[in-house]
Simulated assay, not measured.
Amino acid sequence: MKFCHSCAAPLENPQFKGPSESYCVYCTDDQGTLKPRQAVKEGVAGWFLEWQPGIDPQAAQARAEHYLLAMPAWAE
């Protein structure tokens, strides 16, 4: 299975498939270019807020930052 190199979304799922072979539709623009790190971080933090309704928004931002470090597109 292929995963987004930016957020780990499953690229074989039509919901996530976009114009890029390496990144999902949520992490790219309409041409398949990777969005800026801050935009992706906001998206991941939003996903944490939906997935874990009791989480504090600041904690979601911190978790998103930590999560992105594990992704190939954002690894340092």
Rank of each mutant, 00 (worst) to 15 (best):
M1G: 03
K2Q: 12
K2V: 08
F3V: 13
C4I: 11
H5G: 13
H5T: 07
H5K: 15
H5Y: 10
C7P: 00
C7Y: 03
A8Q: 11
A9R: 12
A9C: 07
A9M: 13
L11E: 04
L11H: 08
E12K: 12
E12G: 15
P14S: 03
P14L: 04
F16M: 04
F16P: 07
K17G: 02
K17T: 13
K17P: 05
G18M: 10
G18L: 13
G18D: 05
P19S: 15
P19L: 13
P19R: 15
P19W: 08
S20F: 11
S20T: 07
S20Q: 08
E21Y: 02
E21F: 04
S22H: 14
S22L: 15
C24M: 07
C24K: 10
V25K: 15
V25E: 09
V25L: 15
Y26D: 12
T28P: 10
T28I: 11
T28V: 13
T28W: 06
D30A: 15
D30I: 09
Q31E: 15
T33F: 10
L34M: 05
K35S: 10
K35E: 12
P36V: 10
P36H: 12
P36I: 08
R37H: 06
A39H: 11
K41I: 09
E42C: 03
G43P: 04
G43M: 14
G43S: 13
G43E: 10
G43T: 09
V44G: 06
A45K: 05
A45E: 01
L49H: 03
L49V: 11
E50I: 02
W51V: 02
W51H: 03
W51E: 11
W51F: 09
Q52W: 03
P53C: 05
P53Y: 10
G54D: 11
I55A: 01
P57G: 06
P57H: 09
Q58L: 07
Q58H: 08
A59H: 02
A59D: 09
A60S: 04
A60F: 02
A60V: 04
A60K: 05
Q61N: 12
A62Y: 03
R63F: 01
A64W: 05
E65M: 05
H66G: 03
H66K: 09
H66Q: 11
Y67Q: 06
L68P: 00
L69V: 00
L69I: 00
L69D: 09
A70G: 07
A70P: 00
M71H: 04
M71K: 14
M71D: 04
A73L: 07
A73Q: 06
A73M: 09
A73Y: 04
W74D: 02
W74Y: 15
A75G: 06
E76V: 02
E76F: 00
E76Y: 01
